[in-house]
Nucleic acid binder design. Structure first.
Lengths: 195, 195
DNA sequence: CGGCATACATATCAACTGTTATGTACCTAC
DNA sequence: GTAGGTACATAACAGTTGATATGTATGCCG
């Protein structure tokens, strides 16, 4: 077994550089040189850890997913509608970090729609997101906080509402300040509650 | 005044080629060469009608907007909630043409978020879209078909819901067939109606 | 110490990008 | 017909892209 030094740690350094590039230049600005420059290194280093551009892109998306998941609060100290609200609010661009994340996601859709592999990955991500939201929706339904309609449809609608808000807020942050985003989510959930 | 031949008609040919490239390759695939090849011509032709890449991109977006507007039915034979429903359904990818359009829009967001001019353009487009929806929402409110809450918030929420559905449907058309998209929109509007 | 991976830097590659200069055929106006 | 602008084709440009081959230093294992 040959020496490993600290391969994983160095790889994480490259990861961090990848993320900085994504956050500042967007997905279209992700190039081997940009990452290398960010590391004060050369393309040789980058290709040493990521053999191809596609591998680098896939890694970048995994990175974005990990960061997204880290942002979502654990659903343990709350349940039902309140937990659902928190889970959706975690996606909204309410912090600089979340804004950065959303910008990366939205900018990735160009490449994701064009490449079959990336497209499938993004599709799966959406499916997993909805699956994670579903139990919260069902709980809220059982609590009488959401109408007893098809939960899958409710989940899809809530995911749509949230991401649609994200896109509008990214393009027009002044028209969608944090307070309004929270208000929109709150009143939307309240409006769905049947009386 | 020098001869004009049919400058505008030829320019429309280039436009059509631009659109074909956008529809098949997405926004990231829009290059002078791709447009020229689509026309069986050279880059000289393209630059003759569009002096720079930026001009070509702006034109491409104007083209998308014109096509989008053409898809939205006139709000004259209906009013209120029904007109609103039709206006929103017109945006959903229910036809190949609309799917094509939405794919172009979503894929444009990468470039739009990175370039200040394009970003402003997209922001204005959203503002105009919401302004066009607002009177329909107000009508529906007056008819008692929507809750008497802040109409601007209602409009933003409906735009969000619709575009969020568009994105999910683009990535997973099998999970979001036409029938389900219509159903989701119908039930969503019905759920918002206060009882 | 010697062998041998690993970890890069360096350099080069062909392909592709937008831009631009130059040529040339054509139409139109005089 | 001829002068001059239009409509391209052709060509070359400098820059950037991802990929790759070759070097070389540095560690660990025997």
């Amino acid at each position: 077994m040959p020496a490993k030094l600290d391969h994983e740690a160095r790889r994480r350094d490259v990861s961090a550089a990848v993320w900085r590039v994504l956050a500042t230049e967007g997905f279209g600005g992700l190039t081997l040189r940009a990452v290398a420059t960010e590391l004060n290194a050369t393309t040789g280093l980058v290709t040493h850890y990521f053999p191809s551009k596609q591998a680098l892109i896939v890694h970048a998306l995994e990175l974005a997913e990990a960061r997204t998941r880290a942002l979502v609060p654990p659903t343990e100290n709350s349940r039902g509608l309140e937990a659902l609200k928190q889970a959706l609010a975690a996606v909204l661009p309410l912090t600089p970090e979340s804004t950065e994340l959303n910008r990366v996601w939205v900018s990735s859709w160009d490449a994701a729609l064009a490449d079959p592999e990336l497209r499938t990955m993004e599709m799966s991500r959406y499916t997993r997101w909805r699956a994670r939201l579903k139990p919260l929706v069902v709980q809220a339904q059982q609590d009488g906080d959401l109408p007893p309609t098809n939960p899958n449809d409710l989940v899809a609608g809530l995911a749509a509402f949230t991401h649609g808000l994200v896109v509008q807020a990214l393009f027009d942050p002044k028209a969608f300040p944090h307070k309004r985003l929270r208000h929109l989510l709150d009143t939307h959930l309240a409006a769905l509650r049947q009386s």
